[in-house]
Computed example of a mutant assay.
Amino acid sequence: MAQIELKDVSLSYFTLKQETEALREINLSIKAGEFISIVGPSGCGKSTLLSLISGMLKPTKGEVLIDGHEVSGTSPKVGYMLQHDHLFEWRDVLSNLLVGAEIRRMDKKAARQNAIELLERYGLGEFAQHSPSQLSGGMRQRVALIRTLVAKPDILLLDEPFSALDYQTRLMLSEEVFHIIKDQGKTAILVTHDLSEAISMADRVMVMSKRPSTISTVHSIRFDEGDDLSPWKKREAGRYNYYFNAIWKELGDHVLP
């Protein structure tokens, strides 16, 4: 059974003067534990798709299902990690990690213990009492991911979480985040403009067309060297260039008139 399903999902925006069709008849099925990347031309509705899955938007037509139940609003099953970390500077790292748990009214003691354990597990234990301003950009994004995990979602939505970082930090953090998500056994959907990132992190890469957007193709990412490779090793694998060139050409076809 699919954990996430979109069935004939369309979304239009309405004003007094016109209707703008953003998404058209999106069909998507994602199993528990899958890592999916979504790429497409700018403005095609990649982030909009995440908003539909999170329950922050409702489709104009069709259904969005999580665990067989129609999404009717935001759910504790879904965690959202954005491009910017949005850490509160007046809170230390540990207090920042508890924000989501506080909003969801989880047991404070259990959430705090879970936060401490996750900090230790992922190499940030010594920074629990630091302020966010004392952390590097990569460390702040790791804290943002751990904050999302403290709330114990089953599904992680990642909306260009590395795009504000320099290239070297981005490479290192994508490696770390990949291993954290796999270690936690989460289902993940990554929206990115970086094809290398999309291919090296995902089990499948979905290519969206220009507006009104559909899912034009889906690439199952498989390597002769094995499917348990790290993102860095995937970039060095034999079929990596094949996937990169194929998806790059498709994106060009959707951008050019």
Rank of each mutant, 00 (worst) to 15 (best):
F88E: 00
P59M: 12
Y13W: 11
I221P: 01
K58P: 02
E175M: 02
A246C: 14
I247L: 11
Q184S: 08
I181E: 00
I53F: 10
P257E: 14
R142D: 10
F88V: 06
T214G: 13
P257W: 04
V78W: 01
S209A: 05
I180V: 14
G125L: 04
S136E: 14
I181V: 12
T148M: 12
E89D: 13
F244K: 07
V93W: 02
T60A: 04
T20N: 15
A111I: 10
I38A: 03
M56Q: 10
I103S: 05
E126N: 10
P76S: 14
L98Y: 04
V99I: 14
I146R: 09
K108G: 14
S216N: 15
S200D: 09
V255P: 00
I155F: 13
N96L: 00
L165Q: 02
S213G: 10
G62E: 05
K186N: 07
V177I: 15
L50M: 13
K58V: 09
I30P: 00
R112M: 07
D183K: 11
L229Q: 11
L65N: 05
K182W: 09
F162M: 09
L171A: 03
H254E: 14
P257A: 06
S196F: 03
S200Y: 04
P212W: 02
L135N: 15
T60M: 01
H254P: 07
L28C: 06
D154F: 09
A188E: 04
I180A: 09
Q184E: 15
D228N: 14
K58Y: 06
T74I: 09
D8Q: 12
D166T: 06
H193N: 07
Y122P: 03
E89S: 13
L195H: 07
V93K: 08
R142C: 03
Q18C: 10
Y240T: 01
D203R: 03
Y122G: 07
D166P: 06
S213H: 05
A101K: 01
G62D: 07
K182I: 14
V93A: 05
K109G: 03
Y167L: 15
R142G: 06
L11C: 04
L165W: 06
L119T: 00
M208D: 02
E21P: 00
R105D: 09
G73K: 13
T60Y: 03
A32N: 12
G40M: 02
S213Y: 02
V150K: 07
K109H: 12
L157Y: 04
Q184M: 15
L165G: 01
M1T: 08
S47I: 11
P257I: 00
F223C: 11
D67V: 12
A164E: 08
A144Q: 06
G100F: 04
T169P: 05
F35L: 11
E5W: 06
L149T: 09
Y243G: 00
S200E: 07
E21Q: 07
L145Q: 05
R239Y: 03
I189L: 14
E102D: 15
I53G: 04
G185I: 05
C44T: 13
L49W: 01
D85G: 04
L165E: 03
E19M: 11
V99G: 05
E175A: 05
L11E: 01
S133R: 15
E102Y: 07
S174Y: 04
P231G: 06
S47M: 10
K7A: 04
